[in-house]
Amino acid sequence: MNKKNLFLVMGILLISIILSLFILKGKIARIIDDHKVVLEVNGEQVTKREYKIRFNTLKENAIQFSSRTDILDQVFNGKTYRELLKDELFTILTEELLCLQEARRRNINLTKQEEEEIKKYIQELKANEEMRGYFNQYLRKIGSDENHFYRDLYKTRIINKLYSSITSKTTVSDSEIVNYYNTNKNQFKKRKIMDIFLKVENEEEDARKREIANKIVSELKKGENFEKLVKKYSEDDSASITKGIIDYFRKGEKEAEYGSVFEEEVFKLAVGQISNVIKTVKGYHIVKVLDEKYMPLDEVKEEIQSKLMKQKKDEVFRLYIENLKKSSKINVYKDRIKDL
């Protein structure tokens, strides 16, 4: 090899070494950064990597729930949603550590069967190729892995067992149930309505159906019979049998079928009143409230008992956690997560 080629090879080798060192330096810096302590609770630490995984989880949930990729930059009460999430996560992680510490003190552990249930759940997530792809993609997106996912589920089950232990003596009396029923009767109101429905299957139909709906409202205001217009216009497949009548339902029971806007409008009306045009995902509705009634206490007693029991248990557990906080040493290092 001549001197010129030797210098060329040595130059390439030197550049490769420099690039490798640069990449290695970056990896080492990331590892060091990931191991920074961002939270300490009674001597137990949460690293930045753990915080990042949980933050990414909250972030993805917020984006999915709001359907807005810019949700983290929105301002609420003077703070961006990003900052609110960071603050909330410190609270979540603090309370989680306190619960796990208390569970250890009480010798609360998972049985072998409970551990196997977690493993089985993960295996079911990976049962077919498509689901496995979504699962792995989700883990990569939040910076996690399967072992970390297992540990999170494990911790959740432990905390649930602690919750059950702390709240096991909580009771709800009959008088509390009666009082709740009497002061919240609107929750148990049912409406019977007659509905004129115009189906919209594509954008081209929308304007035409909206025009027909407005025409129907005009006819009703002039005194036209509602039932007659049901027969004339309604496109509900069962309209010919039910005469447009949707039998008694309470708020929440028709949300999956018609949407929350439909129910909100229906329950705003008085008996005998006719709505304006209501737009839903399926089309346009004009409804008339025929009757209303309240569900009897006996019918909703178990529902109320379950609701009050959860409320009371949650409050007992919340107060328990607050007392743990008061007797604990908690250090938060917010400056170490500024870049998230």
Rank of each mutant, 00 (worst) to 15 (best):
K221W: 00
S218Q: 08
E322C: 07
V271H: 02
R68Q: 14
V9M: 14
F188A: 00
N202R: 02
Y181H: 04
R210Q: 08
D70C: 04
V230I: 07
K27D: 04
P296F: 04
V266E: 07
S144P: 14
L19P: 04
D145A: 10
I28C: 07
L269E: 11
R208Q: 02
F317Q: 01
H35F: 10
N5H: 05
D70Q: 05
K313N: 06
V266G: 08
K161N: 03
E117L: 08
D335S: 15
N136Y: 12
I158D: 10
F249I: 04
N214I: 00
G283F: 01
K307V: 00
G259A: 15
S240I: 06
K112I: 06
F149L: 06
E253P: 05
E146P: 02
T242L: 06
Q74W: 05
K228H: 08
V266H: 05
Q64M: 10
T57Y: 09
N136W: 03
V75L: 05
H285G: 08
Y284V: 00
L198A: 11
N61G: 03
K27G: 02
S275H: 07
F149P: 01
N147K: 08
V281R: 13
L84D: 09
C99F: 05
E88D: 13
K190H: 07
Y181Q: 02
G78R: 00
I286D: 08
E203H: 05
N323M: 01
G133N: 13
I53A: 11
V9K: 15
A213S: 09
Q187D: 07
G252A: 10
K161Y: 06
G244R: 05
I122H: 06
N109F: 12
E114V: 11
Q311E: 15
K192D: 04
L84V: 09
R106K: 14
Y180N: 04
E129Y: 10
D145R: 08
N214Q: 07
V300S: 11
Q113W: 01
E265S: 14
M131A: 11
K48M: 04
I92E: 13
I32H: 09
S66T: 15
K141E: 15
K59M: 10
E255A: 15
G143S: 06
R106W: 01
D87V: 06
G272Y: 12
N184Y: 03
K209N: 10
N202L: 06
I158C: 10
V289C: 11
Q273M: 09
I18N: 12
N147P: 01
S327W: 00
Y294R: 03
I32G: 07
Y163P: 06
R210W: 01
D34P: 11
K334A: 11
S240C: 04
K334E: 13
